[in-house]
């Protein structure tokens, strides 16, 4: 078994003059929640579409579950559950009948599994109502339920919290975290930075079809060369630290002082402040938010970009 469930190599998709995905080489390890982050039009959905066989790559290759696909994805797709773009199921069928149909065509699952999944996504009470009568939030939940039928090893979820109310968003995020346990991998595509930050273990950042960065979320957020401190007298501490030539800068962020200094020299900071009668109550390597990191590496806002892009 390969370490990666998805590996792409120079995957490219061009729509006429538009380069939707540009030489994307991505590795999604097995297990956990992997975020595909980028503004609208950055190529997230096209990338998912290529890996799922919906969109033909212009060039490049990819492997699923360690296997070369060679254009034949059927066996691999039987191990995958996916909701790409908005959830789209049959409007004239009930939620239950929709799930039974998709179980049926993949030849896996049972009515009991459908009942369990409907219970899990909170739709047991409306299971026999037609899909066309569902609210957007219920459709999102049924979309997740659809992806879960057949116990897939890999789940693709494309903007799964779109249209949900705040309570629904929290529930779905909990559900995604749960789904990413037990060896299953969830590939979550989102333009919501805080969602990815809260839910994902690893992330790949796309911008204008290119892979900008990928890695563990904690590693990406770790700000190199800065420490965050809390003291008994922050104003005096700021004054002392600013006067030290080996500290590049000091700023106040959310009630903490952030000093631009390598974390390895934190003992010198502690000593310098203590000599002046200022004592540290809290000290950690400084982290930035994913939003800050995103802005740093892409120079654009994650929620911006062309709407409805490929």
């Amino acid at each position: 078994m390969s370490e990666y469930v998805i590996e792409t190599h120079n995957l490219t998709k061009r729509y006429g003059p538009v380069l939707a995905v540009d030489n994307l080489s991505l590795q999604v390890p097995q297990g956990g929640v992997f975020g595909l982050l980028g503004p609208n039009g950055s190529g997230k959905t096209t990338t998912m579409g290529m890996v799922l066989g919906l969109v033909r790559p212009t060039s490049g290759t990819f492997r699923l579950f360690g296997q070369e696909t060679d254009g034949d994805l059927q066996d691999s797709l039987h191990r995958i559950g996916a909701v790409v773009e908005t959830p789209a199921l049959y409007p004239y069928l009930s939620g239950r009948a929709n799930l039974r149909y998709f179980q049926g065509i993949s030849g896996k699952g049972s009515p009991q599994e459908v009942a369990q999944i409907l219970e899990m996504v909170g739709l047991a009470g409306r299971a026999d109502s037609k899909y066309s009568t569902y609210s957007m939030g219920m459709k999102q939940r049924l979309g997740i339920a659809y992806a879960l039928t057949g116990s897939p090893e890999l789940l693709f979820l494309d903007e799964p919290t779109n249209g949900l109310d705040p309570a629904g968003v929290a529930e779905v995020r909990d559900l995604i975290r749960t789904m990413g346990t037990g060896g299953r991998t969830v590939l979550l595509s989102s333009h919501l930075l805080h969602e990815v930050e809260q839910v994902c273990d690893r992330v790949a950042i796309l911008s204008k079809g290119k892979l900008i960065a990928q890695g563990k979320v904690q590693d990406l957020l770790h700000r190199r060369g800065a420490i965050r401190i809390k003291t008994n007298n922050d104003a005096r501490a700021a004054s002392i630290l600013t006067s030290m030539p080996w500290i590049a800068g000091v700023s106040d962020e959310d009630g903490y002082l952030v000093a631009s200094v390598a974390p390895e020299r934190s003992w010198e900071v502690t000593a310098a402040l203590a000599q002046q009668g200022v004592y540290i109550s809290e000290m950690t390597p400084a982290q930035r938010s994913l939003e800050e990191y995103f802005l740093e590496v892409t120079g654009e806002d994650a929620s911006s970009g062309p709407k409805g892009g490929k």
């Binding site: 066989g53 919906l54 797709l77 789209a88």
Partner: peptide, 9 residues
């Protein structure tokens, strides 16, 4: 989309 990503062929 929903049908084809199930490996329907």
């Amino acid at each position: 989309r929903a049908v084809l990503v199930r490996g329907t062929g």
